[in-house]
Design a protein around this nucleic acid. Structure first.
Lengths: 341, 341
DNA sequence: CGGTAAATTGCAAACGTTTGCAAGATTCCT
DNA sequence: AGGAATCTTGCAAACGTTTGCAATTTACCG
């Protein structure tokens, strides 16, 4: 009964709590904030009451007053292909690591997926909402210019993506060009000479991967790499891949897929038409997603260190929040040789 | 130059904007809210100025005043196995669909991953933060009781997971028991008689799947199903699976894996030891993740409709926010026959 | 014990928005 | 033209915290 009575007293606000403790709201605020300006005994009493009633301060009010929210925005721009990242294991895994890393650093994560094409204002709207202290953009998609503009006037932003000479926004990402070189070199070491690149190069990360491969092809005076554009969503990609193979079969002996997902689809398509891998065609992917170690034959690929990427993103963002100027962070990819090349 | 001057006038608050428009803040608020109480001409003028200066109202302040934030919390409790869901494609895909669905309905998404073991207070803390209007819990993990308690005093919560007789919290999920039946029936139809279940049954969803399979085994007077517990993270699971196979090989001819991910690992392990699938052992998974259509041989599995699940979660939550009482939603799983059984 | 320094508290004004109420301006009718 | 009805607008009080400043209490010292 007595317990009932105390439990019944709803104590939602710091003022309720203050009344119960017989002090002023200000004191309660200070006590809960753990500042040293309040008497130890008072603090303990207040903490006890707070615990007993399960009191939690309203973060909205706190955020408004302090002009900071403790929330980091994470935004995934869905480019050309709206359905793109939904199936994209890479981005989702990165998101998982980001959530962990941010939690660890005491921040909450607000997720937003946007379609820039329908909503030119996507980035400013998020930043201007007053809900977030900083923003992490996952993937530049085709929004490089928009991001550059924003970066001029807004500090606490870090982007996952490709690093270009002289760009103004702070980016974390794999050295895609180097990755492309590694991939091409591996294909060639495995005996391939006439290469194709599978993937849509309007995404600048992919373009950079192709460029790296082309570096190698040129250096060795191989024929130019054939581009085979493909969407990332499995439904669409399957057809596209089939058509591409139809067209180029016999003229190539090595395929560099922009993504493990594409590589896996490609592998299936090749098997369907009875093409031996790596016998007739060598194949290499990118990312080293779980799927790469489940295909038959096992997929040779270029690994991105996703956990390190997430750590880098958060680290740089928090340093920028603290007012620091930060350079971009370019992570080295790593060749993982399995069976397809 | 003129443009420079106007652009320079920082207009962050509704009051700034009011001053520029020569009206009171209240009028600006009403104009921007699109209420009909303001003169068309005034509204247009205000909207023009707002657009010109890229004004966005502060959502924190708005949220505080209106006592609603337009944000839905999504929380993933990491149970027994901390690293669990990070690699779990299923949860991540669900999250992606949730993000889409919430955006569509005009809500933002706040993501939190918690380790209940280290933080008994995880759910109340999130709810009491004042930052969210409602919460979606992805996966009951081993927190069924905690969730039940909270459900008694807090309406706007919907949980992804398993539905049990007479439970008090509103849940959306696949009929796991039925799924288990479908799986067992398929294994048996393919010729298996001595079944094993691969997965950790302290997760109640998995327990229900096993229960469904046992229903069938009992009905047909087959020997009891052998349990092979395994973690979900690939690193740990591989070893565990290898050990399990070592122990039971020759005594079973059908494996029901709790998850496609486990099934894929299992398939690899079986190939390593030269066991023919489906020749010597039939195998079936659960979920129908992308990986299921990339293994060799292709994985037979029980499909969960993730998109429908996300839609259901959001729909029920919004109805609860509107004050409605809602029943749980149980989705039918669907057998997808491929090559492993 | 008087007096100063330090520690502790209360007061009240912010943070930026929304909204009930009432005042002022228009419109419309007779 | 006079007055009621309807539109528009402004005023000011919230929403729940935090924090500078000042007032009060306590501790300390000679």
């Amino acid at each position: 009964m007595g317990e009932d009575r105390t439990a019944r007293t709803a104590v939602r606000t710091i003022t309720d709590l203050a009344r119960l403790a017989g002090v002023s709201p200000g004191t309660v605020s200070r006590a809960l904030a753990g500042k040293s300006l309040v008497n130890t005994k008072t603090r303990e009493k207040i903490e006890a009451i707070a615990r007993e009633h399960g009191f939690r301060p309203n973060q909205m009010a706190s955020g408004l007053r302090r002009q900071k929210t403790g929330v980091i925005g994470v935004v995934i721009p869905l480019g050309h292909d709206t359905r793109q990242q939904i199936s994209d294991t890479f981005f989702m895994t990165l998101l998982g690591f980001l959530a962990d890393e941010l939690t660890l650093r005491g921040y909450d994560l607000m997720l937003r997926r946007v379609v820039p094409k329908d909503d030119a204002d996507w980035l400013d709207r998020f930043i201007g909402s007053g809900m977030i202290d900083g923003v992490i953009v996952i993937g530049q998609s085709d929004q490089f210019d928009r991001i550059e503009e924003v970066a001029d006037g807004y500090g606490p932003m870090v982007v996952w993506g490709n690093h270009a000479e002289g760009q103004r926004h702070c980016v974390v990402g794999t050295d895609n060009r180097l990755g492309g070189r590694l991939a091409a070199e591996r294909l060639i070491a495995a005996g391939a000479r006439r290469l194709a690149f599978l993937g849509d190069t309007t995404a600048i990360e992919f373009a950079a991967r192709l460029a790296g491969a082309e570096d190698v092809a040129q250096r060795l005076s191989l024929p130019p790499i054939i581009e085979l554009p493909a969407h990332l969503s499995p439904e669409r990609a399957s057809d596209e891949i089939a058509r591409h193979l139809e067209a180029v079969m016999g003229r190539i002996d090595g395929i560099f897929a922009a993504t493990d997902t594409l590589a896996a689809l490609c592998l299936t398509a090749l098997r369907t038409r009875g093409v031996a891998v790596p016998g007739d065609i060598k194949l290499i992917g990118f990312d080293d997603l779980p799927i790469a170690s489940h295909t038959v034959p096992l997929l040779t690929t270029v690994k991105q260190d996703i956990a390190a990427g997430a750590r880098g993103l958060v680290d740089l963002l928090l340093r920028r929040l603290a007012g620091e100027q930060t350079e971009s962070l370019v992570l080295p990819p790593q060749l993982v040789v399995r069976q397809t090349a």
